[in-house]
Structures are given as C-alpha cells and as structure tokens.
C-alpha cells in the first residue's frame, strides 16, 4: 500500500527553493529595482492617460493621493508578473529538472503551490517597495490617507495572487520561457483591457466582462480604500482556478 503524502507537505520547501534561485540571480533585483523606479515615475510625471477620464500625474494634479499609482498597477503587473513567472515551469522543462521535480514524494499541488507562493512573495515585495516609496514621498508632500494606501496594498496582494496563478499556469503549458511570457502578458493584458471594451459592447456583455476583469475588482474598491468581500471571493476563485489548472497541466505531463 503506497503512502499518500500530506496535501501541503513540501509547499514551503518548494517556495524556499524558488525564492532562493530568484534571489541568487541578479534578474530579480533588476526587475524589482526597475519597478520601484518606473511605477512612481509614471505616477509622478505621466499620470494615467488611459480610458475615458485620463488622470493627471502627481505634480499636475496637486493632490496627496496614490489613486493614479494604483491605476497603473493592473497594467504593469500584467507585464511584470509573466516576466517573473515565465521560467517557473518552462525553465524547469528546458533544464530537464521537471521530471526530477515530479518524482519527489509530494503532491503535484504542493509543488504548484510552492511555486505560486514564491512568485507571489516576490511580486508583493516589488509592489510593496514601489508603493511605499511613492507613499513616503506623497506623505511628505501632503496629508496622505494611509488607510487607503493600506487597503490598496491588500487589494494589490489579491491582484498579484490572481495574476501569479494565471501566469504560472501559462508557464506550465508553454514549451519555452518567451512563449510563456508572451502568452501570460497577452492573457493578463486582455483581462486588464476588458473594462475598456464596455463602451462598444451591448449592456449584458459589458456588465459580464467588467465583472470578469481583475482591474474592476481592484480599482473599484481596494484602490479607493474599500475592502469588499465579493472582491475577495473573486480573487480567491481566480487564484484557485489558476492553481487547479496549473496542477492539472503538470499532472497531465507527469502521466504522459
């Protein structure tokens, strides 16, 4: 009789392994450093010129608020998260370590969860540093509402979780890193762009698409300082969907 491994056994060691490999190469530092510089720069100088009501940059708007910065997050993360996660499975496959990984006496789900945790922590570190550095600047310049910043960070954590699980799934079904990145950026970019289609779609479809977009669930509440249970349910389900799909994709290969 074979002994079934415990459901979550191996999650943390796999997460540690992923984080170790990320932090031992300069790529993660360069990515985080760039993000810490680019996101506030867009917020300070460019504003958010997307959609029907473009938002001014910090200096032009003259208000102590991070709402413009939060508007950039869904779009930038749609590009950055696939970049951080593209190698999670594709690189394992290229280096030939995937087979070895799958022979460990742990469930596939635990490996997937470990990789997801690592990507999530990495993304959150990046977002946290960028948002907090901008918040410190704005807090020095005016009366910043730190509660809204905190809620925005919580919402960003949910958003990162959803994005990371989808990007990891796409990495699992891609043969190469570049394909994984392009596919991830395309899918997350489409999810980000759904609210932009509202004007050209009929009412029912517009409502459904808006409800399906992570951008709406983030910008509609958490970015404004509101934590909504229905948004949490949305992101939990999105993340779960990505993780299960990822597990099934890896399982499929394990038994191929």
């Amino acid at each position: 009789m074979s002994v079934q491994p415990r459901p979550f056994a191996g999650v943390l060691p796999f997460a540690r392994r992923e984080l170790r490999s990320a932090f031992e190469s300069p790529v993660a530092y360069v990515a985080i450093g760039l993000f810490v510089l680019v996101l506030p720069a867009l917020f300070f100088f460019l504003g958010y010129p997307v959609g029907r009501t473009p938002l001014p940059g910090l200096w032009e708007g003259g208000q102590a608020s991070l709402i413009v910065l939060f508007h950039w997050l869904p779009l930038l993360l749609a590009l950055v998260v696939p970049a951080l996660s593209m190698g999670a499975w594709a690189e394992e496959r290229r280096a030939g370590t995937e087979e070895l990984l799958l022979t460990y006496p742990v469930r596939t789900g635990a490996v997937v969860l470990g990789k997801f945790l690592a990507t999530w922590i990495l993304t959150m570190l990046m977002v946290g540093l960028a948002v907090l550095s901008a918040a410190v600047t704005v807090g020095f310049l005016g009366d910043l509402d730190w509660n809204t910043v905190s809620a925005g960070l919580v919402g960003a954590a949910w958003l990162c979780a959803g994005y990371a699980s989808i990007a990891l799934f796409l990495s699992a079904v891609s043969s190469e890193q570049l394909v994984a990145f392009l596919l991830g950026a395309l899918v997350l970019g489409l999810l980000w762009a759904l609210p932009l289609l509202v004007r050209v779609l009929p009412g029912g479809a517009a409502g459904a698409l808006e409800a399906a977009s992570p951008t709406t669930h983030f910008l509609g509440s958490a970015a404004r300082g509101v934590l909504d249970l229905s948004d949490l349910v949305y992101f939990v389900l999105l993340t779960a969907l990505g993780l299960v799909a990822n597990t099934l994709a890896v399982e499929r290969r394990r038994w191929r």
Partner: peptide
C-alpha cells in the same frame, strides 16, 4: 455578499 469595509479617511 454586500459586506465591505471602508477604510478610507473620507
């Protein structure tokens, strides 16, 4: 699920 909490100062 209408439960939500508004943390903003305003």
């Amino acid at each position: 699920l209408g439960q939500r909490v508004d943390l903003s100062a305003d």
